[in-house]
Each structure stands twice: as C-alpha cells, then as structure tokens.
C-alpha cells in the first residue's frame, strides 16, 4: 500500500505557488483577497496544505472554520479531521438485482453531505438501463420519471465516486489538492483546490462536481456534523465528490454511509475489505461481481454485484 502522505511536503506549497503564478501571468491578475477582507479570509488564503499542517496549526484551522460555519448557519457546527482507522480499507457493494431506481440514496446523500440545493449538485447519479442491453451506457437514461419504479424491462445503476485504488483524478491535480487516504478514500482539500477541474476531466465516472456559485444550503437543513475532507460547506470554485461519508464511517463505532442507510431495498453494502467477516468480503467472494469500466484499470473499491 502506498503511503502518499510521505511525499516531500514542500512540494505542495511550491507547486501551488507556481500554478497561481502561472495563472496570474496568463490572465494578468491574481485573485487576492480584497484589502478590506477580514483576518480570517487572509488566514484561509495563506493556509498550508492539509497534510502539511502540524497539530497546533490543524486545530487552529478547524477552530477557524467551526467559527465561520457556526456563524453562517446559526448553529454549533463541528469540523472533524478524524484520521483513517488502522487496518481498514473501505469497500462498497451495490446489488443491481435489488436496486429499483427510487433515488432515495441521491437525496439522502445531498442532505447528509451539505450539497448545494441550487445550483443543484448531486454526488449520486442513477441510470436507467435496458435489461436486454445490459451495462451499455449509450442507452442510459438519467432523467426517467415514471409514477412508479422499477419499470418493466429496466434495471437501475447508481454511480458515484468509485474510490479507485488507482485514481486517475488525483494524478492530474497540479497542486495535489486531492489524494487517496490510507483507508482508500479519495479526498479533496477544498482550501487548497484551485478549481482547474483537471480531475473532473480525468474521472471516467463523472463523479466529481464543481461549485460554480456559492451554493444555497438552507440553515435548517445544514448538517452540522462535518469533516474537513468531507461534508463541510464548500467555497465557490472548488471540486467535490463522494467520500463514503467520511464524517460517519471513520468514527468508532461508525455509522453506515447515508446512502446505504436510506436504501429501502437494502441494495447498498458497506464495510472493511480487510475484515474476512464483513458483508463486503462475503459478497465479493460469493456473488457475481463486476467493477465499472474495468478496462481502464482504475481498480474501484465500489463493486456492483448480482445477489440472485
């Protein structure tokens, strides 16, 4: 297993500065905070990469963010930075023989993860496909809306970040604002992301989403239990995606991801792939399993399976 946090730490700052400089040269202006900006805006601007922060600095950053969010959303917001659990590699299973395409997972995710309601951002996309044609994306229907699902002759395939073991998205990031953690979750440091969207282009699953505007997130719907690398409110101009509900699943005991919890048919399975007694291991070893776009060698830790 590769430990990416052991990279040369200075690389982050240097390369980000270089990119920003390049941008400035290209467009003639560097987007510096306005001169009347508050101290915390300046602090955020000069914040180091998440992986470079020492404990004191990290606590300062978390405290600053908690203060900002609590004020903005009018409630006590927690920003955790819980580390990966030793000996855990997360895996996800989705039973295509059960899923009925009801989209409860899509909205469960939006609520848990503080996605923007407008403009609409959804980390899960459900495709309706023809049983006869199988997983042939040229027939994928994203906007199906019949009175009832499942529809005769159709099956449904939800797609979200596949948490690749060999993620193409992280490799193209010019500032290393996105990386794979030791528990396998691919994360984004929203304070470091420069919004170039190379990662979005590199992702074969269209699982990354860009914040074009300051998203609307009603105060009363904001989930105050957040993680720095997960569901905390995102600034404008950064990329976001599914993190297997890092704010839930890294706890001990850790709840199931929100999408698995709301699924009314029990099609969504989650657990530790290194634990031979976990449901994810059982299904990988006993069921007919496939991974999406296998030929790209991205090695997803998201497994589609047929239980029947």
């Amino acid at each position: 297993m590769c430990n990416e946090s052991s990279h040369d730490k200075h690389a982050f700052r240097k390369s980000r500065r270089k990119v920003l400089k390049g941008l400035a040269a290209g467009i003639g202006a560097l987007a510096l905070p306005a001169t009347n900006a508050s101290a915390s805006v300046w602090e955020a601007f000069f914040q180091k990469n998440f992986r470079e922060l020492n404990k004191t600095e990290l606590n300062q950053v978390l405290a600053r963010l908690e203060g900002e969010y609590s004020k903005e959303y009018g409630k006590q917001v927690t920003v955790k930075a819980t580390l990966p659990i030793e000996g855990v590699k997360y895996g996800y299973g989705l039973d295509l023989s059960r899923c009925i395409g009801c989209r409860r997972c899509v909205y469960g995710c939006v609520e848990e993860n503080n996605q923007s309601r407008e403009p609409e951002i959804q980390w899960i996309r459900v495709m309706q496909l023809d049983k006869e044609k199988g997983v042939d994306l040229s027939h994928a229907e994203h906007y199906y809306n019949p009175p009832e699902v499942p529809q005769e002759g159709k099956f449904y395939m939800p797609v979200q970040c596949q948490q690749c073991e060999n993620p193409p998205c992280t490799k193209v990031c010019p500032v290393q604002a996105t990386w794979k953690e030791n528990d396998g979750i691919v994360v984004v440091d929203y304070n470091w992301c420069i919004g170039c969207r190379y990662c979005m282009a590199a992702c074969p699953y269209s699982a990354r989403h860009f914040n074009w505007a300051k998203g609307k997130l009603p105060k009363e719907e904001m989930n105050p239990d957040t993680h720095y690398l997960g569901n905390r409110p995102r600034p404008v101009g950064v990329v976001e995606k599914c993190t297997f509900c890092i704010q839930r699943t890294r706890e001990q005991p850790g709840r199931y991801p929100a999408c698995a919890e709301v699924c009314p048919v029990g099609a969504r399975k989650f657990g530790n792939m290194l634990d031979p007694k976990s449901e994810i291991r059982y299904l990988i070893e006993n069921k007919r399993v496939f991974i999406f776009k296998e030929d790209l060698n991205t090695q997803p830790k998201f497994f589609y399976f047929y239980a029947t």
């Binding site: 005991p253 850790g254 699924c263 449901e279 059982y282």
Partner: peptide
C-alpha cells in the same frame, strides 16, 4: 451476513 435485506446501525459496531 447482511447481503440480502438490510442491517442498520454501525458498520464496525
């Protein structure tokens, strides 16, 4: 084993 139907609660608890 939690593969048909559904378990709720904690994945590691």
């Amino acid at each position: 084993v939690g593969v048909h139907g559904k378990r709720t609660g904690f994945w590691n608890g």
